[in-house]
Design a protein around this nucleic acid. Structure first.
Lengths: 110, 110
DNA sequence: AGGTTGTATAACCGATGGGAAATATACGAG
DNA sequence: CTCGTATATTTCCCATCGGTTATACAACCT
């Protein structure tokens, strides 16, 4: 995964409206108007969010008559998840080492 | 984890410089100047990034004489990870169901 | 063809991000 | 006290975000 790709993915996730859209899409495809409904936002506002999600590859859009149904694309999420996971493990390993060190120090001077 | 907290965390992760800083800090504490060194950026630029990371709770800073060593705080990362993970699982479950459906359809009409 | 619904685009606005440069502050060394 | 180092803060710039309203485009239905 390129750095730019991670940029776009995390940036797309950094907005509550977009995370809510993703949560909604987790239950299945939805049209733009169906996504507009639950929010107090205008349709263009939602379309903008969808474009950002699309740019990050988090969703793709089909064509059904004049509707453009959105669906989730799980791969970029998996990649972001992988990045987070690997660093989390690394950090936790570091903290474990730190804990070990502290334990050692405590034992040396009780 | 509050929505605002997730906002700040993902926003902080959406910049390659900040991710690089986190990667550097994964190897242990570092001062501001040590973090400035590997980049072509000015010191104030790095200080800004550190402030954003601090705001998201991803790092904390100590005090050692006139230095302000930065260290990683793993908890918010774990929380972001948890959010991603849960949605990823949900989406993958959805895709699995879709796959099952497709398999079923294939078997019906071979 | 004309009207309606679904979606996208444009133009605009205020807030914020990411950067540079300059300056201020805080601390330690001599 | 002064100098140098480490860091923070201020000021300024430009680009982008997130929202609005108004408008255009596209596809369906009479």
């Amino acid at each position: 995964m390129t750095t730019a790709h991670l940029d776009a993915t995390f940036m797309a996730l950094a907005d509550p409206t977009r995370r809510a859209i993703l949560a909604r899409l987790a239950q299945g495809e939805a049209t733009v108007m169906e996504l507009v409904a639950p929010f107090k936002l205008s349709q263009p506002a939602i379309s903008k969010h969808l474009k950002i999600l699309e740019r990050a590859g988090l969703i793709t859009r089909g064509r059904d008559k004049q509707k453009r149904p959105c669906r989730i694309e799980p791969q970029p999420l998996a990649e972001a998840n992988q990045w987070l996971e690997s660093y989390r493990k690394l950090w936790e390993a570091n903290f474990a080492r730190l804990d070990d060190l502290l334990d050692e120090l405590k034992q040396q001077k009780p």
